[in-house]
Design a protein around this nucleic acid. Sequence first.
DNA 1: TGATGTCAACCTGTATACATATGCCGCGAA
DNA 2: TTCGCGGCATATGTATACAGGTTGACATCA
Lengths: 209, 209
Amino acid sequence: MTAGSAERIHAALIARISEGRLQPGAALAETALAEEFGVSRTPVREALQRLARDGLAERGPRRAFALKTPDPAEMAGLFEAVGEIEGAIAALAARRMTEIERAALAGLLEEEREADPAAYSALNLRVHAAIRAGARSPVLARTLEALELQTLPWRAMNFARDAGRQARSRSEHRAIAAAIRAGDPDAARLAMQAHVAGAFLAATRPLSE
Amino acid sequence: MTAGSAERIHAALIARISEGRLQPGAALAETALAEEFGVSRTPVREALQRLARDGLAERGPRRAFALKTPDPAEMAGLFEAVGEIEGAIAALAARRMTEIERAALAGLLEEEREADPAAYSALNLRVHAAIRAGARSPVLARTLEALELQTLPWRAMNFARDAGRQARSRSEHRAIAAAIRAGDPDAARLAMQAHVAGAFLAATRPLSE
DNA sequence: TGATGTCAACCTGTATACATATGCCGCGAA
DNA sequence: TTCGCGGCATATGTATACAGGTTGACATCA
């Protein structure tokens, strides 16, 4: 019992989407994928069902799976929801973080100030992870993760980043951290929502900024 | 090609959970379910995978599926997340509902005032549906639905309702609607969060109130 | 009597076979 | 030339067969 083919294929497909190696709307035929991965259709079916559950694939007219095409309007709704949930997380963090956690968050921002562009992305993730941890809500954290996964094809299409965005992102982080440190949930929520909106706009208009 | 066995079985299992006919922790053996539903293991597998994705089942030590046991702490976290998301929905509704929608919501509350206990439950659903529709966020609506589904075993365990809860629920609805009508997102959010918390407490302590 | 080793039954993971429906392609007629 | 129809190829839905492993019981020995 190898026990894990489906999971492996699921991860492989997500990686392909992330790298842009799967075009939006691409057909995901069970037979072809089974042959390609050297397994039978059964684990492929499970992987595709999981992908559909993740919101990354949908069933076509012939019940066949196809990669979801990122609809701009739907993506805007997705980012809005991400902003609301991450805002709620920030508000909870402002209420619940311990002094040590607040200090650790401040420390992360110090690191961030002198980080080169290559290291910035990883630090950005750590900042958000620290806030998630401080919110004490595994349910909201899981929900956020699921929604962010659905933004993956969009991010894969718009990977262009302008240099100015990074500076603004840092400044937004500081505003969030300041509100959290001050224990102001409403300000933390608003700052986080502005941050997510800024990231969305940067991803949406990579050329015009 | 019948095309839908898995969906039927999935729905049947959810119905059983909802009716309390499946004990928490109950083993969900593929073979037994396949024989019971008169199908093969394949659609049963798909139904169980969907159930696990819904957060209603989890895999045991032998990779077998078992009904998730409702953990009080986890349920509290779940209701908190529901409160945050439904609060966000209420805040968005306060900003976005048209005048006609606000009037319709007020009309629902009028109906609610003179509803007998039997009709109240359906009206309660309509109130929340009206607010969801006014929020213009299908993503948050879907997310909320997914989380509420996970509270199902908990609600199945604690179906006791006291008469006082219904009166308080009506009053909470009025507070939410008033904030929405006034276009006050923050007040709408807080009122909705208080409403969800009240429902959770009523479900948690059905005897002590 | 208790402990341990072995065996058998069962359950999941995977592969494959079969049924069925759909889309495509070619052919014929208007 | 174009429209319509029929057959074929193929893909999914479902069923069943096979493989690997774990659990549990039962028998045997100290």
